[in-house]
C-alpha cells in the first residue's frame, strides 16, 4: 500500500510529467490559454492515459512478452494509442454531445502527446504490477492536469502584463515553466 501512495505522490508532484519529465509540452504551450480549456484537455488526457496504459499493459504481458516480440513494443503502443483516441472520439460523439463539445477538439491532439506513450512505456520499464501501473497512470495525468491548470491561470494574468516583445508567446511560457519547475522540485523530499 505504501508503494502505491509513493507512486501517487511521485506522479503528481515529484516526477511531474511536464515540469520534471518534459512530456506533454505541446498542449502545455498550445492549449493552456484559458482555465476552462485547460480543464477540458486535462480530463481528456486523464481518460486516455489511464485507458491506454491499462490496455498496453495487458498487450505487453499477454502478447509481446509470451511471443518474445518486445522489440515491437513502441510500434504496438503508438498504434493502440492512435486507435484508442479515434474510438474514444466516436464513442463520446455518440454518447453525449455536451461531453463531445467539451472534449472533442482536444482528442486528436492527444495522439501526439508524448505523455501518453511515455507513461505507458515507463509503467512497463519500471516493472510495475497492475495496481502500481494504474496508480502511476492516474497520478501522472493528475500531475499533467495540475501543471496545465496552474499555467493557464498564470497565462490569463500574463495577457495583461507588459512583456518585452521578443519574450511574448513561447519564451515567456518556458520561463514561467522554469519557475514552476523550481517550485515542483521543492516536493522532491516528499516521498521516502
Amino acid at each position: 500500500m505504501n508503494d502505491i501512495l509513493a507512486i501517487i505522490i511521485g506522479g503528481i508532484f515529484v516526477n511531474n510529467v511536464i515540469f520534471i519529465k518534459f512530456m506533454g509540452l505541446c498542449p502545455y504551450i498550445g492549449v493552456a490559454k484559458r482555465i476552462d480549456t485547460a480543464v477540458g484537455m486535462s480530463l481528456g488526457v486523464l481518460f486516455v492515459i489511464t485507458l491506454a496504459s491499462t490496455i498496453t499493459f495487458f498487450i505487453n504481458y499477454a502478447v509481446l512478452v509470451p511471443f518474445n516480440i518486445e522489440f515491437m513494443r513502441t510500434v504496438t503502443f503508438i498504434l493502440v494509442i492512435a486507435a484508442l483516441v479515434q474510438m474514444v472520439e466516436l464513442v463520446v460523439r455518440k454518447l453525449s454531445s455536451t461531453l463531445y463539445n467539451a472534449l472533442g477538439i482536444y482528442l486528436p491532439l492527444i495522439t501526439t502527446n508524448c505523455a501518453v506513450l511515455g507513461v505507458a512505456l515507463l509503467a512497463i520499464k519500471n516493472d510495475y504490477n497492475f495496481w502500481q501501473m494504474l496508480a502511476y497512470a492516474v497520478s501522472s495525468s493528475l500531475g499533467f492536469g495540475l501543471a496545465l491548470i496552474i499555467f493557464a491561470g498564470i497565462r490569463t494574468k500574463l495577457d495583461s502584463a507588459d512583456i518585452p516583445l521578443p519574450f511574448r508567446g513561447v519564451p515567456i511560457a518556458l520561463i514561467v515553466a522554469s519557475i514552476l519547475a523550481m517550485a515542483f522540485m521543492g516536493f522532491s523530499n516528499m516521498v521516502k
Binding site: 516583445l165 519574450f167 519564451p171 518556458l174 522554469s178 522540485m185
Partner: peptide, 22 residues
C-alpha cells in the same frame, strides 16, 4: 543541470532568436 535550467535556457534562446529577427 536541473529541469528549471532547461526551461529557462530554451526560453532565453528562443527569445534571443526572435529579438535578432526583429
Amino acid at each position: 543541470a536541473l529541469p528549471p535550467g532547461a526551461f529557462l535556457g530554451l526560453g532565453l534562446l528562443i527569445a534571443l532568436v526572435s529579438a535578432y529577427q526583429r
